[in-house]
């Protein structure tokens, strides 16, 4: 019997890389396989309302990403302090505060956009994606994970509404970011499609995006 004592290496769990595979999934999944708009079908209301032109859509996307990331972060930081019985109100309070700040900043520094987006910035409060992430993720996860999760859902929402806006503005107004595309490529008489300016156009384009995505991913609703 050996008296030699094997030195036990101190098992120190390697600290997880800030972009580990698990964490990358928080950001990547909502962009495609678990997209809040096309798969979870959340946030449709604003996807219809603000997507007539690219510029307001971009501002709206930035606003939503900002609100969702910071709301996730704040809720995650205070998740152990929040009494379970009033957690929804607390979440709502955090979201409403962030949204109000965004709206005030917009009013101060980009008034024309404030007039265009008007009520819709305020309605981010009721965007189901934001509250959904707080309740489903931030209430039970650490701060950094929650930030990543917020970015994932925010960008997942953003690319879909930007795609919708791109086609609506292109075919509805013949422009992209107010740049006259058809005129530039020598088709000044290209007919505009009035349907695209209407919310119906957004439904159609959103439907096509969902169709393409599901055909590609083989996603079936069960």
């Amino acid at each position: 019997m050996s008296t030699e004592t094997l030195e036990q290496p101190v098992v120190k769990a390697p600290s997880e890389s800030i972009f580990s595979k698990r964490r990358r999934r928080f950001v990547m999944d909502p962009l495609d396989d678990d997209n809040p708009v096309t798969i979870q079908v959340l946030g449709i209301c604003s996807a219809l309302a603000v997507t007539v032109k690219m510029e307001p859509t971009l501002i709206m996307s930035i606003a939503v990403v900002f609100v969702i990331v910071f709301a996730n972060l704040i809720i995650s930081l205070i998740r152990n302090l929040v009494p379970g019985r009033i957690r929804i109100i607390v979440q709502l309070g955090v979201i409403a505060t962030l949204v109000t700040v965004v709206s005030e900043v917009l009013k101060a520094y980009n008034y024309p956009m404030f007039k265009v987006l008007g009520a819709f910035v305020g309605l981010i409060i009721t965007n189901c994606i934001v509250m959904g992430r707080l309740e489903a993720f931030a209430m039970g996860n650490k701060a950094w994970d929650s930030i990543l999760d917020g970015m994932g859902s925010g960008f997942g929402y953003a690319w879909v509404i930007l795609a919708v806006a791109f086609f609506r503005e292109l075919f509805g107004s013949g422009t992209v970011f107010d740049f006259p595309v058809f005129e530039a490529i020598g088709l000044p008489n290209f007919p505009m499609n009035g349907l695209m300016v209407d919310s119906i156009g957004a439904f159609m384009i959103l439907g096509i995006i969902i169709w393409v995505q599901r055909a590609r991913n083989g996603y079936v609703e069960n």
Binding site: V105, A108, Y111, F114
Partner: peptide
């Protein structure tokens, strides 16, 4: 806390907002 944040934002941004409205 929330009330404080909101009134602070409103106070800080008020001059810039007034200018935006005037310009518009």
């Amino acid at each position: 806390v929330i009330g404080g944040i909101l009134s602070f934002t409103s106070q800080v941004l008020a001059p810039a907002q007034k200018k935006s409205v005037e310009l518009d």
